[in-house]
Computed example of a mutant assay.
Amino acid sequence: MILAAIIACEIGFWVAILAGLCARYLLHRPRLGAVLLALVPVIDLLLLALVTVDLLGGATASWHHGLAAVYIGLSVAYGRRMVQWADLRFRHRFASGPPPVRLTGWEHTRACWGNVLRTLLAVGIAAGLLAAMIAIVGDAGRTAALAGYFSILAVILAIDVLYAASYTIWPKRPGLAPSTLAERGA
Rank of each mutant, 00 (worst) to 15 (best):
L129G: 13
I134T: 08
P99N: 01
M133K: 01
V116P: 09
V123G: 05
P98L: 12
A131Q: 15
T109D: 04
R118N: 09
A135R: 15
L130S: 09
G105Y: 07
G138F: 07
V116S: 10
D139I: 03
A122P: 03
L121G: 00
W113L: 07
P99H: 01
L103W: 01
T104V: 13
P100R: 09
L117T: 05
R93A: 12
T109I: 02
N115H: 08
A132S: 11
T109H: 02
T104I: 11
V101E: 15
I136F: 08
P99Y: 02
L117C: 07
V123I: 13
I125G: 05
A126L: 06
V116M: 11
A135F: 14
A132T: 10
E107Q: 14
M133C: 13
N115F: 11
I136A: 07
I136R: 06
P100H: 04
G124F: 06
R102N: 04
N115C: 04
L121Y: 00
T109K: 03
A126G: 10
G105M: 04
W113V: 01
N115Y: 10
I136M: 15
A127K: 03
L130C: 04
A140T: 13
W113E: 09
A127F: 14
P98G: 13
T104Q: 09
A95S: 14
V101L: 12
